[in-house]
Amino acid sequence: MGIALTFASPTGKLSIRPSNTIGQYNGPGVNVASEAKADSRTVRSMSADRVSYTLDSTLETVNNAEETAGRMAAEAGFDDEEIMKISMAVREAAVNAVLHGNAYDPSKKVTIAFERTAHDLVISIRDQGKGLDASKIPDPLAPDNLMKTSGRGIFLIRSFMDVVEIHPSQTGTELRMIKHVHGNPADSKEAPQ
């Protein structure tokens, strides 16, 4: 705690809410940078908030990712149960990135991006591993796999989120997940008449 962090301020078009500031997301080796590329294909609307974190391949990253996800989900108006599901999905994705993707390699980083659009909370987690072949992930509910001590992470992510996409490549895996915001009072207030 108390480690100085670097913070690249946005170029202007996107706003980062105060809760996304570095003060609530600190820890050794944590590098926080807001992404504000106006031409980024992942930015769906100019009113969206997007923040990304580049983190070391450590257990602390997993805990930080989970905590941040919970905070983002709360801000997006999700109820306690949905917040738990979102933060757990992010935790599992971060575990995959840190353990299975980067294998705790200190030279490899994990990038986590949160994007709030009018209707969704979009979270992507990228590692620098060999690339996850989703087709080779065994079904943890199959009788032969039920008593295995691992292999439930992706299943839980898919159970908790509305959309889950896994994009493997030779330079790593990006796991993108979306939770739809239902009946968010803040949204309805802002909706055009």
């Binding site: 599992e92 575990v95 008593m147 295995k148 992470g153």
Partner: peptide
């Protein structure tokens, strides 16, 4: 989490 579930198993 999934690791804890695995530990229970």
């Amino acid at each position: 989490d999934s690791s804890g579930i695995g530990e229970l198993v």
